[in-house]
Simulated scan of single mutants.
Amino acid sequence: MGMTGPGYPANLPAPQQKRPVWVVGGVTIVSFVVLLYIVELFDSLTGHRLDDNGIRPLETDGLWGILVAPLLHANWQHLVANTGPALVLGFLMTLAGLSRFIYATAIVWILGGLGTWLIGNVGAHCPYVGVQCETNHIGASGLIFGWLTFLLVFGFFTRKVWEIVVGVIVLFVYGGILLGVLPGTLGVSWQGHLCGAVAGVIAAYVLSSPERKARELRRSRTSPPYLTS
């Protein structure tokens, strides 16, 4: 039983140790991927009815798909193909800070989805001549492309060495998939990839604002005064 008073130290709560960033990040991204598998399992058991809720471009009802499309996949093969990049790139994203990861993901999710809703029918292959094609975009690949471009450019906005190094490594390992922003493969949403990639760059610029402002402040303090004559 603790005592306080003259000659006795006050009972202070033991300081709580914060979990390492990599642990929090790992748990976060693994939980997200597990959620994708739970959704796909439910979708498979219900005859893939959820897949109809993807992004349908320029349709009012298709706007709902912006919120849910990254959680939906056409089949298990589609989900498995996205799993590796989602785990690796998502984990690297969390190392920039969990709050930045959440904000960046939200920006890519919404802006990338909105862009897909606007241009998703562009270049769509239609089997019937003279008929306007309607497309339905689903999958986490747009989000993955956003994470990829975020990691590629974030270090150049912040001017932090380790973030630049991460960007270079990501470019070396995953740079080839950036070709996915180009049209060509039937059944693949290059529009979603492109819009996700653009949203990732926007997210990196917006979320690097504290570092950019601090750099400008340091520059203004160290710049010599201008003299006129």
Rank of each mutant, 00 (worst) to 15 (best):
Q77I: 10
Q77C: 03
Q77W: 14
H78C: 08
H78P: 03
H78K: 12
V80Y: 11
V80Q: 11
V80L: 13
V80E: 09
A81E: 10
A81F: 11
A81V: 11
A81I: 11
N82E: 10
N82H: 10
N82D: 09
N82C: 10
T83W: 08
T83C: 08
G84H: 13
G84M: 14
P85T: 05
P85M: 10
P85Y: 09
A86Q: 07
A86M: 11
L87N: 07
L87A: 09
V88I: 15
V88P: 07
V88N: 14
L89Y: 03
L89D: 00
L89K: 04
L89I: 02
G90E: 09
G90I: 06
G90F: 09
G90K: 07
G90Y: 11
F91Y: 09
F91M: 04
F91K: 05
F91S: 02
F91P: 00
L92I: 04
L92T: 02
M93Y: 02
M93W: 00
M93S: 00
T94Q: 06
T94E: 06
T94I: 04
L95Y: 10
L95W: 12
A96K: 15
A96D: 13
A96G: 13
A96W: 14
A96I: 12
G97R: 06
G97E: 02
G97F: 03
G97C: 01
G97P: 01
L98G: 05
L98S: 06
L98E: 01
L98Q: 08
S99C: 07
S99T: 13
R100C: 01
R100T: 09
F101M: 05
F101A: 01
I102A: 14
Y103Q: 15
Y103V: 15
Y103I: 15
Y103A: 15
Y103H: 15
A104Q: 00
A104V: 00
A104R: 03
A104W: 00
A104K: 01
T105W: 09
T105K: 09
T105Q: 10
T105N: 11
T105C: 08
A106R: 13
A106Q: 10
A106E: 09
A106V: 14
A106I: 14
A106H: 12
I107W: 04
I107V: 06
I107H: 02
V108H: 05
V108R: 04
W109E: 04
I110A: 03
I110C: 00
I110P: 01
L111C: 02
L111V: 06
L111S: 03
L111D: 02
G112A: 04
G112Q: 00
G112I: 02
G112V: 00
G113I: 01
G113S: 03
G113A: 00
G113L: 01
L114R: 07
L114Q: 06
G115Y: 05
G115S: 02
G115E: 01
T116E: 05
T116Q: 08
T116Y: 14
W117P: 05
W117C: 02
W117L: 07
L118A: 13
L118C: 09
I119N: 08
I119P: 06
I119Q: 06
I119K: 08
G120C: 05
G120W: 08
N121D: 15
N121E: 14
V122S: 11
V122Y: 15
V122M: 12
V122C: 11
V122A: 13
V122W: 15
